[in-house]
């Protein structure tokens, strides 16, 4: 089912594109079911062919492990076609018409925010229980299904499994790092931006926090001009600058020395009352604010986990039968 012969798509029907990856809306010839076809060309970074793109390998491996799940996009198949003598890989997914970003533009009321963030947290908890770090959670990698009113997490091209211990090599962080360079910078946790070598499941929770705030205020929380220093100073201006007491080792990360100190960054003290954050998301109640601040905790090891977040007081009055 859903192999190259059974799926057809029209090149003009482009849903999304990023660098050379393109997603088309297609159809299954037999059943007429709508599908999304994502095309990933050969990895040709730096002008040399490097074989199958690692994003394809990650995405297929991880989706095979995670789906089917009610909050994870349904993966159907992957197949390879020839394009100018180079293989062009296609991944077939279920088709979803709307991203969370589009939904946020239509303004969400507080009860919907609560329902959607609960769904997102359930999806993330599912990933984390399979030791998968998503690494690129943002309002465009989360899709929305209008019939069931459910979100589906997609965009696993930068994810990785952390079932074995790993340290990211320094040169890797600077040259290839998909987590640092390719992902949407507005949702990246400070440990990515500071080029820390240790990141884990808790990094996703920062991104979830950013999405949570975005849903509540209707706009991106930390918007900067896509460079890691300005992104960091944007975060620090809202949450205050972390000190060694908040986050042991923070000042020894590569990014801290090279980028912040070199720029003679104007450090502000940490804002314990979270006034600036409250001003950014006035629509959240006390419980919501508490949950958000636990997601946007500087120290990755003190950040709330997805599973714990699901039991937070904020979701006490949520009707979980109607999710």
């Amino acid at each position: 089912m859903f192999s190259g012969r059974e799926v057809e798509w029209d090149a003009s029907n482009r849903i999304w594109s990023w660098e050379k990856n393109i997603v088309y809306k297609g159809k299954c010839k037999d059943t007429g079911e709508d599908v999304a076809v994502k095309q990933i060309p050969y990895d040709s970074s730096k002008g040399k062919f490097e074989g199958i793109h690692p994003n394809l390998i990650r995405e297929v491996t991880i989706l095979r492990r995670l789906s089917p799940h009610q909050y994870i996009v349904q993966f159907h198949n992957t197949f390879c076609v020839n394009d100018n003598k180079r293989p062009l890989w296609n991944i077939v997914f279920e088709y979803l018409s709307c991203t969370l970003k589009q939904l946020i533009k239509q303004k969400l009321d507080p009860s919907n925010v609560k329902r959607l963030i609960y769904q997102i947290l359930s999806g993330v908890a599912h990933c984390h229980s399979h030791s998968v770090i998503h690494r690129n959670l943002n309002s465009e990698s989360i899709l929305f299904e209008e019939n069931s009113r459910r979100i589906k997490i997609a965009g696993f091209g930068l994810s990785r499994s952390c079932s074995i211990p790993f340290g990211v090599e320094e040169k890797f962080l600077k040259s290839y790092s998909p987590g640092v360079e390719a992902a949407d910078i507005s949702y990246q946790p400070p440990e990515f931006l500071l080029l820390s070598e240790n990141y884990s499941l808790s990094s996703d929770m920062w991104s979830v926090g950013c999405i949570f705030a975005e849903m509540a205020r209707g706009d991106v929380l930390f918007e900067a001009n896509s460079c890691s220093v300005s992104q960091l100073s944007e975060i620090f201006s809202v949450l205050g600058t972390p000190t060694e007491a908040d986050w042991a080792g923070v000042t020894s990360y590569i990014g801290w020395e090279e980028e912040l100190e070199a720029l003679d960054y104007n450090f502000t003290s940490k804002d314990l009352t979270l006034e600036a954050l409250k001003a950014k998301v006035p629509a959240l109640d006390v419980d919501g604010m508490d949950l958000l601040s636990q997601m946007l905790t500087y120290n990755p090891s003190e950040r709330i986990t997805a599973k714990k977040a699901l039991d937070h007081a904020y979701f006490k009055n949520l009707d979980k039968t109607e999710l």
Binding site: I52, T61, R64, C80, P87, S163
Partner: peptide
């Protein structure tokens, strides 16, 4: 090089993209 690139596809399709493995390190 061509051989490696072809073999990469063969390897991946042979093991069916099943790259999940438990190594003893953790």
């Amino acid at each position: 090089k061509e051989l490696i690139l072809v073999a990469e596809i063969l390897l991946l399709s042979t093991i069916g993209f099943d790259l999940e493995m438990q190594l003893p390190y953790l």
